[in-house]
Amino acid sequence: MSPSHHHDVLESLLAPLPRFICGAFILPAFLFLPLWWHRAIGSVLFALLALLAGKRLRWGYFLLLIFSVVFFHLLAPVGRVLYTSRWFTLTEGALVNGLKRAFTLVGMVFLSVAAVKPQLHIPGRFGGLLGQTFWYFEKIWDGKRTITRKNFFSSLDALLLERFSPELLGGNSGKDLREDMVSAKEQWKGWGLAVIFVLLAWGSAALGMTFS
């Protein structure tokens, strides 16, 4: 059982590769949206997609990120003054810049989380190495229960010794998570849907640009 996963709804619609490519092509369209609230809406949509992908999102973290980005942008006042006090001047330009930047960053992360799956096949020997790494990762994660907080390192050491003893070294080549990856035939599943999504994204970007 992998950490932080619920059921991935998108998995049945898109194979990992078209899913990633779809996300990669939607990203520039997102970055072309001119107004901050366009990007805010985009972020919300991507967040929904990420939730559909089964990922747990830490809302507190992202809210804090948005606040801190806006805060630091407010420190450089620009544009119409909305509020002023002895210590601080709140300007419209700085606020808009901050909000735009904040939602750009947050949106990017959500989109990425929705689009990227560990089963994404990375070609070559490095890909194989990554696959094997993930397989070992699952093995360690399965034994997580045995690790205690008090004796963290000794219990970790014990777990590692048990699962990765030296005799096993060299015997595991070829085992990797790619075994549970999609077959070649299924590799392109959902590419039509991916194209539709990309077109929708670019259409929205074009709309946003003409009506801003």
């Binding site: 830490r58 094997q132 990765f164």
Partner: peptide, 29 residues
């Protein structure tokens, strides 16, 4: 194969640590 295994195990350990850290809430990002 041995080199591959060592790298993969170390890599897996690194991911494990990073995931543990990810799950523990931090006061400040």
């Amino acid at each position: 194969p041995i080199r591959r295994d060592v790298l993969a195990v170390f890599g897996a350990l690194s991911l494990f640590m990073s995931t543990l850290e990810y799950l523990v809430p931090k006061p400040l990002p």
